[in-house]
Design a protein around this nucleic acid. Structure first.
Length: 233
DNA sequence: AAGCGCGTCAACCGCAATTAG
DNA sequence: GCTAATTGCGGTTGACGCGCT
């Protein structure tokens, strides 16, 4: 039985993806595209390795070219996405920090769903990551807010529920909303500090404890590029 | 223990913008 | 300047884990 390889990202507490799980998922979801036998679905470690290798040789611009010559049965688009969202050496893997969370709220209030623009201000974070973060966390907060409003004042709720923070497609319209979300973030930070074992610390310990047992490619990459480790080897 | 619902996140899709020929 | 190919972006989907009942 294969041992756990790595968490997909050191982002969530004890959420592991084992090689057996990966292969199960693969058999279920890995599909072969209609055109030119291109692969779809989750990337394998071997594919990642291949992609990193070719990107280091040819740079991260000519994705169609890389897709063709690498022998990967992936589209250039898919290669680019995998690189940008997962394999890029500068990516941060881990929980959003409170500072990042604040920044996202503020920038989203300014720019709306300009995810790549926002990502530009958050080094190591991808537009996809921010987008996902926004959808999950902010929607939740908006729901909580709605609840609060409902319980505190039923008369004013009619006008307030029309505020546009309910979906990820809408931009927060006014300063009141932004400050509300920031307040909620602060409250959540307090909770988190008490309850949650820091993810980065956990991840650090996991990799450190595994360091004698042979590293997978991704573990190696995590060590190689994470700011937590100065020198991998 | 099983089933269900929800949250998370990697990856896909479609369209717009940009670049190459 | 025009067209085709490629890249980038934002929205959406679907698999999976986890907690609750």
């Amino acid at each position: 039985m294969a041992s756990p390889i790595y968490p997909t990202k050191p982002r969530r507490l004890l959420k592991w993806k084992t090689s057996s799980m990966a292969s199960t998922r693969e058999t279920r979801t890995l599909m072969v595209g209609m055109e030119q036998g291109t692969r779809k679905g989750p990337w394998t470690e071997q594919e990642d390795l291949q992609l990193v290798c070719y990107v280091s040789l040819f740079g991260d611009r000519r994705w169609d070219f890389i897709a063709k010559i690498s022998g990967l049965k992936r589209t250039g688009k898919s290669c680019r996405l995998r690189w940008v969202n997962y394999l890029h050496p500068d990516l941060k893997h881990g929980r959003m920090t409170p500072e990042e969370e604040h920044l996202i709220v503020e920038l989203h209030s300014k720019w709306g769903n300009k995810w790549s623009q926002i990502a530009g201000r958050l080094p190591g974070r991808t537009d996809n990551e921010i987008k996902n973060y926004w959808r999950t966390h902010m929607r939740k907060m908006a729901q909580e807010r709605k609840k609060n409003l409902h319980s505190s004042s039923s008369s004013s709720s009619t006008s307030l529920t029309s505020l546009s923070i309910e979906t990820s497609t809408n931009r927060m319209e006014n300063q009141e909303e932004v400050s509300f979300l920031l307040t909620m973030l602060e409250e959540k930070e307090q909770e988190v500090m008490v309850k949650v074992y820091p993810m980065d610390q956990l991840w650090n310990e996991i990799v450190t404890s595994d360091s004698n047992s042979g590293l997978s490619f991704k573990q190696y990459k995590a060590m190689e590029y994470s700011p937590l480790w100065e020198s991998p080897i």
